[in-house]
Every structure is written in C-alpha cells, then in structure tokens.
Nucleic acid binder design. Structure first.
Lengths: 221, 221
DNA sequence: GTCTATATTAGGATAGAC
DNA sequence: GTCTATCCTAATATAGAC
C-alpha cells in the first residue's frame, strides 16, 4: 500500500522518473512555481502521460511524502539503542538534516502545503511528534546517565526547541544566505544544536565545548 | 516615501481597506489561496477598482510588508536602552511575537514569497539580521553585567538560535495544533525562549527558573 | 504506456464608460 | 474612484488515437 520506489522492477519506470524530476524542480523553484506541464516537459514526456501515472500534482506530492516518511521513520526508529556520549548522537542529526534538505520544498511552505493536501496533515504531525519524542528520549537517557544536569521540565522544553530548530534550520540559513553550500549549512546546524547542551554538562562542559569546536573546525577548512 | 496607512486623511480610504482585508484573508487561507478577485469580492468592490489602487497582488503584499517593516523596526530599535534583569526583556518578545502573528501569512511561506517579490528579499534579510543583532546586544549586556556566564561564541550561537525560534515559533506551534489560541501560544513561546537562559545563570539560575515558571503559570489558568 | 489535441477553469490584468 | 466588460495567459485535467 505504500509506494514502491525501490528496486522491485527492472525498468527505469516512468512513475519514478516523474517523482524524481518533480522533487528536483520543487526544491529548486518551489512547489507552487512548478506546473505538471513543466515536469512533463523536463522529462520529455507528454502531460497526458504524466496524468496516466498520477491523478495530479497533489498525487505527486503525496508520492514524494511517502518516500520522505519512510526514510525519516527509518532514521528515527533505529537509534533508540546506544546513546553513549553526547557527541555520539551527531550522526543522527546529520542524517535527519540531509533528509530534510532532500525534501526541502516541503518544509519551505509547510502550512500551505498541508492545507492543500489534508491527508498529509496527520502524517506530518506524527513525524514531528516522533522527532520530538526521540529527542526527548535521548536527552532523558543522558540525564539518567548523569551526563546532563537538567530538570524534567527542562528536558521537555529543550526537546521542543531542538525539534523546532531541526525543522527550520535549513530554511532559516537559506534565507540568510541562499548560496550557502549544503554541507556547510548542515554541519553548522549540527554544531549549533549540540552546542546548546554545553551549559548542562557541568564540569565536563568545558571539555565538551572544546571537543565540539574541534569537530566543527575540522570540516570548516 | 513609505506607505501612509495611519491617521493622515479623514476618509476610510479604499486603499487601506484593501490592505486590511487582504491581510486578514492571507492569514486565514494563505496568500497563495487568495486571489485579487476574492479580495475585491469580500470588500464588495470591483476587481477593476482594486487594480486602480494596486498594480497587482504583489503590490498589495509589498504594501503589507511596508507596514510590517515599520512596526517591527520601531520595536527593535527602541529597547536598546535598559536591559535591567533578564526577565524584564520578556515584553519585547511579546510584542515581536504579536507582530509576527499579525503578519503570519508572510512567515508561512517565506521562501516562496521572497522569490516572488524579489524586492522584499534584502529588506526581509535586513530585518532578520537586525533581530539577531538586538538579541546579541541584549545578551552581551547581560554577560557584561555578570548575569550570564557565557562565552563570546556562546553568545553568537545563542542569539542565532533565539532569532530562529522567534521566526518560526508561531508556525511550528500552529502546525502541531491549529486550534491553539494566539495568547497561549505566544505566552508559551516567550517562556520557552527565556527558559533557555537558565543554565547560564549560575547560582541565580534556580531562583530565575522558579520566577519564570510562576510567570508562566500566572497566565495559564 | 504514451502521444496529440482539446476542454475547462481561474486568476491576473486592462480599457473605457460613468 | 469606481464599475462593467473583457482579454490574456497559464494550469489542470480528460478523451481518444496509436
């Protein structure tokens, strides 16, 4: 019942090519600025053909969301295993950011998009909640391990702020500087989020901050 | 050279009624979903009349931005006077949030809107930078006063996170729960932002946290 | 599955009378 | 300043041949 965009069939399937091209165009120009005709033109197929595969633009958007949801769920449901040290969670942030970047057209007009495709509303909301829950779970495990000296309500607030920052970091940075390279942008986002934990680390805070800055600089040259 | 939407002339001026109605509709349904014809219909004037006052929808948007920019600048350029204690800055947060809420249609599709109205791009970017600069200035004065135990780069990071959170808080909360009342939403946003300062307050942190929660509860009944 | 052709609609925008 | 009437354009969507 979900979309099979993976390696089930041999041929280059038009349906998948449509999704792929639509995604690229949406991300570049914004979903609102891209018409079905344009997608078809880029693919060098007829609009009629496109409509054979998708009932319309909304169906394409839903198809793309299927992919996004699947990938993001994989990331979010996997890592609830080993929190280790604070700095070991950065890899998940990276992956989430990359996922969001890949589907950034979606995040660039969330309210508009969700009320044009009401079926996506609950699904997106569940993803947001899941993201925040995972953040909270990680924070709590760090708290219980004595790494984070933070109160219970502090955890809730922090988890929410982190979830918000993850959601909008890429858009915010792109607004400030549209020419920013993806890698640098994501790297800085991870750094910004992790650096937020510093003041709750007590004595280890200084060491952590140093470590974090080294990590940050390491990719900045 | 700016828009005169204030009390300069006696009559109820159609131009202003257009702006006012457009703003209400944009906020409710999203800018993309509102046509010039619809605006005219709600106002009970003809589309032709609307086009007499504004070259088109983009001109209306720019007119609204003029108002927004003016108001937000007033707030942001005024307060650089007395930072006092941490908790005294909450009033500015309130006002900024209300301003953003009043023009939320704009924030709900920033990337799309800005590349449809390129003239607004540098203006909006300046506003974002100003917001972040003000946040930073306040944080620095608190730091210098010995209230905030935070490093120089810590201030930069914190100011950026705060600016981001201000920008997107309302949208984020509305996505989670569309029925949330404006007042509660803003109140919680102010609380969330201020609570972020707690861990840098050292010994006063506990007192501050308590004070903050009382402030939060006080409006929550 | 894919094409060509075309129907349908709606939004943006203007001309000219009042 | 305001209205009526109308045009233009572009996007969505479908029918029917290949």
């Amino acid at each position: 019942m979900a979309s099979k965009s993976s390696k089930s069939s041999p041929r280059p399937k038009t349906r998948d090519r449509i999704l792929q091209t639509a995604l690229a165009l949406f991300n570049e120009e914004g979903e609102a600025e891209v018409s079905t005709v344009e997608i078809a033109a880029v693919l060098d197929i007829s609009p009629g053909n496109l409509y054979y595969h998708f009932k319309g633009k909304d169906a394409i958007i839903e198809g793309l969301f299927d992919d996004f949801e699947e990938e993001i769920r994989q990331v979010l449901t996997a890592p609830i295993a080993k929190p280790l040290a604070v700095e070991d969670n950065w890899i998940y942030l990276y992956i989430i950011f990359e996922e969001i970047h890949d589907f950034r057209f979606f995040y660039n007009a969330l309210p508009t998009l969700l009320d044009r495709c009401p079926s996506l509303q609950p699904r997106f909301r569940r993803l947001m909640a899941l993201k925040q829950d995972v953040a909270k779970a990680i924070l709590i495990s760090l708290q219980k391990a004595g790494v984070l000296a933070i109160s219970q309500t502090g955890v809730d607030l922090l988890a929410e702020r982190i979830a918000l920052q993850i959601t909008y970091w890429i858009q915010y940075c792109s607004l400030k500087d549209p020419n920013r390279k993806e890698a640098a942008l994501i790297h800085e986002g991870v750094f910004s989020i992790l650096s937020q934990l510093t003041p709750w680390l007590g004595e280890d805070g200084i060491a952590y901050a140093t470590l974090l800055e080294e990590f940050y600089e390491s990719r900045n040259a």
